[in-house]
C-alpha cells in the first residue's frame, strides 16, 4: 500500500503505513517546525478516530498507532482531512520550566571540551543561557528531547554507550540536549544532573511536562543538589 496525501493548512502532507498497525504522517516538501507538529498531535488526539491508541510526535513526523491492522488508509485520510478542516483554535503551550542542574556532576567534560574546543565554564554558560523547547519524549519513559541547542556546543554521541546513566542526567547528543528521567543505558555526553524527576508513575499523566513547554537550565552547586534531592523534589 502506498502513501495518501492530504492538505493541512494549505500544505501537502502524506500518510504512509509503518507496518500493519501504524501510519506515519509527514510533510511532503518543507519541514513543518515543532509547533505545527505539536498542533497536529493535539488535534488528532482531540478527534475520535476509530481504534487510535497512540499519537507519537518526533521532530519531523507523527506516528499514529491503531489497535487493529489498517486496511483502509483512505477512510482514515478522509477523516483526518475533516479534523484539520474544522480545527478550532489551538493555543500553543508556553510554560517556562526552570530546571536546576548541577554541572559538577557531569561525566563527560573531557570529551565535551575536546570536541567543542571550549572550556567547561563557557559550555555551562552557553547551555544554561538558552531557552529550549520540549520537542518530544521517548527512548525511555520521560526522556526529554529538547530543541534549541547552541551550535557551538554540539557534540557527537559517545562511540560506546554507557550501560548505566544515572537518573536526572542532562546530556548532549549531536545537536540535541535532553534529560534522562530514569536510570538507563545511554550514549549521550553527560554534562550534569538535575535533582528533579519528570516521571512519576502514580500521576496521571505520568510525565509532568508537556510538548512545547519551554525549558531553561539553572546551574546549582553540589550542595544544593544534595539538599534538593533529599528534599524529595518532584
Amino acid at each position: 500500500m502506498t502513501s495518501r496525501s492530504l492538505q493541512i493548512e494549505q500544505k501537502e502532507w502524506q500518510l504512509t503505513p509503518l507496518g500493519e498497525r501504524a501510519l506515519v504522517l509527514e510533510p511532503i516538501a518543507e519541514e513543518p517546525g515543532l509547533s505545527v507538529i505539536h498542533k497536529i498531535c493535539f488535534l488528532i488526539e482531540q478527534s475520535d478516530l476509530d481504534g487510535l491508541m497512540d499519537v507519537v510526535p518526533t521532530y519531523k513526523c507523527i506516528a499514529l498507532l491503531f489497535k487493529e491492522p489498517i486496511t483502509d488508509t483512505g477512510s482514515i485520510t478522509a477523516k483526518l482531512s475533516e479534523v484539520f478542516e474544522h480545527a478550532g483554535d489551538y493555543i500553543p503551550r508556553n510554560d517556562l520550566i526552570r530546571v536546576p542542574v548541577c554541572y559538577e556532576l557531569g561525566l563527560d567534560w573531557d570529551s565535551m571540551e575536546s570536541q567543542t574546543g571550549l572550556k567547561k565554564e563557557k559550555i555551562i554558560q552557553i547551555h544554561s543561557g538558552t531557552t529550549y523547547t520540549l520537542a518530544m519524549m521517548g527512548f525511555i519513559p520521560g526522556f526529554l528531547y529538547l530543541e534549541g541547542l547552541d551550535k557551538k556546543i554540539i557534540c557527537p554521541r559517545k562511540s560506546e554507550p554507557r550501560t548505566k546513566v544515572p537518573a536526572g542526567s542532562v546530556g548532549i547528543g549531536g545537536d540535541q540536549t535532553g534529560v534522562y528521567s530514569l536510570e538507563s543505558p545511554g550514549g549521550w555526553q553527560i554534562i550534569g544532573r538535575t535533582p528533579l524527576s519528570f516521571f512519576n508513575k502514580d500521576q496521571d499523566p505520568p510525565v509532568s511536562v508537556s510538548l512545547g513547554d519551554r525549558i531553561r537550565f539553572e546551574p546549582i552547586s553540589e550542595e544544593e543538589f544534595g539538599k534538593m534531592e533529599s528534599g524529595g523534589n518532584s
Binding site: G19, V24, V56, T58, Y59, K60, C61, I62, Y145
Partner: peptide
C-alpha cells in the same frame, strides 16, 4: 534524526548488526 518505531521494526545501526525491536523497545529511534 529520531523517528517513530514500533515492535517488530528492524533497525540497522552503523555497525551493521541489525536489531529487531521487541515489546519493551522505545517509541522513537
Amino acid at each position: 534524526s529520531s523517528v517513530p518505531v514500533v515492535p517488530g521494526i528492524v533497525q540497522l545501526p552503523p555497525g551493521g548488526n541489525p536489531i529487531v525491536l521487541m515489546h519493551d523497545a522505545q517509541s522513537v529511534g
